[in-house]
Amino acid sequence: MEIPYNVEERQDTGMYNAKLGIWLFLASEVMLFGGLFSAYVFLRMGDITGTFASGSQELNVPLATFNTLVLITSSVTMIMSWVSLKLGDMKKFKMHLGSTLLLAGVFLVVKYFEYSAKFHHGIYPDTSTFFSIYFTLTGLHMIHILGGMVVIFYFLVPGSKMMKTEPERFTNRIETVGLYWHFVDLVWIFLFPVLYLL
């Protein structure tokens, strides 16, 4: 049985189903990260000793700045992969999506070095309230990066066969994974100043 509204737009929503689905999922993600941001504000406001704000001084700003630029670049390569599909250029699609995967890997490697340095200096989630929220927020964000990498890899290698049989449906799939990826970038845009610079 064919699943309806994979490509054609529903009259009531004005879009294909997966698009509404990913936006509803992203709305729930906004609340997930929003709750944790709220916890961050709560802990920061409740800190009368000043130790919470000083936690960020232990973090590596140049590395995080580099990682911010890496994620922004990956957002561009992601949207360029969708553009390439719209223009029917499969070779460029693979190049751009492959670059996105590579940049995601770079982000994780940098994060690995950051985490290693913290552990080496005896800094763990139970060190302070700042580091408990730091590891929770960045850890959850890293899980999202990893999840995105799995999906991107699928669409880059085995899943790309669909382009030959159902090109429009495949393009829509890339648009939805792109929306997810940009959201992950968006979260980092707020995490970076909040955790590293304030």
């Binding site: 698009k19 509404l20 609340m31 929003g34 709750g35 709220s38 406001m45």
Partner: peptide
Amino acid sequence: TILAVLGLTFFFLLTIMFLPY
């Protein structure tokens, strides 16, 4: 449709951010 969903989400996000205050 999407803007309406996000508008509602943004309202709840503001609410949750206001709770610590």
